[in-house]
Amino acid sequence: MQVSITVNGEQRTDEVEPRLLLAHYLREVRGLKATNIGCDSTSCGACTVIVDGLSVKSCTVLAVQSDGAQVTTLEGLAGPDGELHPMQAAFRAEHGLQCGFCTPGMVMAAIGVLADNPDPTDREVREGLEGNLCRCTGYHNIVRAVRTAAQAGPAAGQVPQAQEVEA
């Protein structure tokens, strides 16, 4: 089947099998390897991306379901001059990542958390990230990073390319 999907602002049309998962489409067809796959059961959230303004687990969405969609991955966050998105900057400042495997999904989910709630408490951040697993950080510095990012204002809860996350 043909699908036309805009990823990080770039639209492309590709021929895909109906069963191709969006996560594999991003990794194998589009060559965007930041999005990781950590489980088979929609549990870990490593594959989280933003689709049409909402955080979703791309291992549980078919590429064909995303025909016509706007997708943002970790690679689409930084500015053209390499300037970090506020969430990326906060994860670095607060040491919110170690091995880095959960990080792309965690950062995208965290943007979704701030889109819903621009100034969450620690508990609200933890509940907002309940669908994303991390083995390295004990979540402590991830929670701090999201709180820090919130201080940067509304941009921390948005993705570029005018695909604002719906509140």
Partner: peptide, 21 residues
């Protein structure tokens, strides 16, 4: 000192074995 590894990990993602090109 914040990590020197992080800018790449946070913008392009790390390169794990299954990511290798």
């Amino acid at each position: 000192v914040v990590r020197t590894e992080d800018p790449l990990f946070l913008t392009r993602g790390a390169t794990y074995t299954d990511d290798l090109v």
